[in-house]
Design a protein around this nucleic acid. Structure first.
Lengths: 244, 244
DNA sequence: CGGTTTATTGACACTGTTCAAGTCAAGTGG
DNA sequence: CCACTTGACTTGAACAGTGTCAATAAACCG
């Protein structure tokens, strides 16, 4: 099993302190001196081509990764080959937190388009967060936020119907895209129907049918992976108990 | 909204260093000096009567809690009143990690039997983990483990059928009970069929029926909340793709 | 005890899955 | 440039698994 961390790290350096994602990423809220120390830590980027894996379940854990550009999915699989997409990650979001528990990654991270990540060596992050309270606290918040997010997905998987799931998924995506300066009403899906279905606990046919239904109901315009949201309130109502 | 943390903390002190749960709880793997500093941090216990809440969504976050005796559930709920049990916690397990992200708890923690928890003031835990590498690392592992656990639940909710879910649930419970010195084959459920159902994304009737089916198939003996596992391998096979 | 909660079971409805066929978009190679 | 291939998507019809509703039984608690 190859250690993905070592593969072709890009030579050039990057600085958190001048990164346009710093308000969405690990450095949120850090003051100047902390930020400059972080620059030293997050020294290299790595490119991951569409379809390639950043890491896979079983790989030794050494680093966290911050998505700089592109789009990822993470998936876990059980022994009998079932697998489940556990999340989609976009710019500014962290990958690899699962690896801390066992010193091995427990899921695969796959690039859904050509992407770049910043490599955050975990040991160094621990050291630095012993020095800087704010960094420590921020890191803990990010882990906690991931737990809270996961609980939200459990709620979705455990108690929502297909339409509600897809509506919640779309609202979540657009909200995150909007925070990154993209349109609130128009988006291009980076993942297939099957990947959406896996994330939402549905079959790809059900995802496809539900997209079609949303289109018929005048909520969306769907052209393959191009989605235009026509009735945002309508979608929101779907999530909030407008059952039937 | 009351701050649950302040309610009736028990007067007597406890010491992690002499706690019989220390190999399952936050102190795992800590050396003597660290352990003694932890004693100072985890100064008080609190009793929570069956049915009472340790904290609820929206409460200010100040402390983590380690279950000392008893049994808890955590649940999140959406605006429209749907709710989802996100986990069951037994002795040695930590509660409250969700609160770090926002300085507010995002779920309710309810005692399913009369319980005691150790109060771990979060600010002090952060301070101490800046001093002690091992404590810091252990804490990160616990958070990461929670993330990995949540991913496992997503897999269950997203891709397993009722029987598989219940089998997986029972195997997980017995494994954790066994690690605490209880029988591997006989257990008493602390939660209702409805709570199990909420956790597993099933209705209580389906849980009940599935228990009955397991009994008919000779896998279990079920008498209300008393479960005796007759065919552990059979249950395991159910989880690992013995579909149909 | 007696009322309340919890659990079991049956009949039936419904949501989502399965299987299969067909469409669409984007290559690929002759 | 067109025929062909391939992967992703859509749609229909039959079906299976759960959910819903309701009636009953058993256990629990004050």
């Amino acid at each position: 099993m190859t250690d993905a961390t070592q593969l072709k790290p890009d030579a050039f350096k990057v600085a958190c302190s001048s990164c346009n994602l710093r308000e969405l990423c690990l450095p949120v809220g850090l003051a100047r001196p902390d930020l400059e120390r972080l620059d030293a830590l997050v020294a290299t980027r790595r490119s991951v081509a569409r379809g390639d894996m950043l890491f896979r379940a079983g790989d030794a854990f050494q680093s966290l990764y911050a998505v700089r550009t592109g789009f990822f999915k993470t998936c876990v699989s059980s022994e009998d080959g079932r697998d489940q997409v556990t999340g989609f990650q976009m710019a500014g979001e962290l990958l690899g937190l699962d690896g801390i528990s066992n010193d091995r990654h427990s899921c695969d991270a796959v690039a859904l388009e050509d992407s770049q990540v910043c490599i955050i060596p975990y040991g160094q992050l621990e050291s630095l967060s012993r020095e800087f309270t704010d960094l420590q606290h921020q890191f803990h918040k990010i882990m906690s936020r991931e737990i809270v997010r996961d609980h939200g997905v459990m709620l979705l998987l455990g108690s929502m119907r297909a339409e509600e799931r897809l509506a919640a998924f779309l609202m979540n995506l657009t909200q995150r895209l909007q925070a990154r300066g993209f349109s609130a009403s128009s988006l291009i899906l980076r993942m297939t129907r099957e990947e959406i279905g896996s994330y939402l606990g549905l079959k790809l046919e059900t995802v496809s049918r539900t997209f079609s239904k949303f289109q018929d109901d005048g909520l969306l315009e769907v052209k393959q992976r191009h989605i235009r949201i026509i009735d945002q309130d309508g979608l929101q109502q779907l999530i909030n108990g407008a059952h039937c």
